[in-house]
Amino acid sequence: MLNVNEITKTFEADNRSVVAVDRLSFHVPKGEVYGLLGPNGAGKTTTLRIILGLLQPDSGHADIGGIRTDRAPMKVREQLGMVSANDGIYPWLTVREILMFFADLYGLEPSKAAENVESLADRFDMRTFLDRRASTLSTGQRQRAILSRGLIHDPPVMLLDEPTRGLDVLGSQIVFQYIGLLRDSGKSVVVSTHRLDEAERLCDRFGLLNKGQLGYEGSLAELQERSGCRTLVEIFTDMAGEQTGA
């Protein structure tokens, strides 16, 4: 469903070029949760932003079902949902208004949008605060509203950028259930995180990024076999050591 082909992105910082993503390629079929893993600064978020069309790669491209982000960015965006740890919410609008607004941005008919809002309200237990302004919501309620917003247009591909960052145990649990739900409904999911322990529980396959380059890729069993290590943390440490020549 989602294909990333040889994308490279360089940023200018302090008068020098920094390669954020270096000839990165991966593929995520329907119903698979792909973990894009790596430490801070590995290039995970940049990769997701390139897929979304928010950043232009220096070379390479991403596509969804054959539609390329560089050639038809708007069409690609219609197929994508995005939830990030940095996401905020409009404080003066109600949860229903926020969801209806995003449904409109994605071109949904009002009747369909209203249907989706009701469905998401049931799924995410939002009935009690659906018509409350976002500024009055608790952290957990805000989180559920944000997760629902990403799904309002029922995208076939979901991108989750550090979805558990800053959350407590209960908050993280909601995210885990959310990801399970996405997998069950047949969506292609990319989860970017540096929490390797969580990723082990959530993802079907993994891409281990370090300094913009994809070191290892595969299922946990494949990675264990290839590296001879047992956990993702050990596998990642092994990969980082290989890349630095240590």
């Binding site: 219609e78 949904l108 799924r123 247009h153 029922d154």
Partner: peptide, 16 residues
């Protein structure tokens, strides 16, 4: 709950 929308299908283009 509700298996129709919006998590019913992962393949269809969402925009109506």
């Amino acid at each position: 709950s509700n298996s129709e929308s919006p998590l019913s299908s992962g393949a269809a283009a969402p925009a109506a």
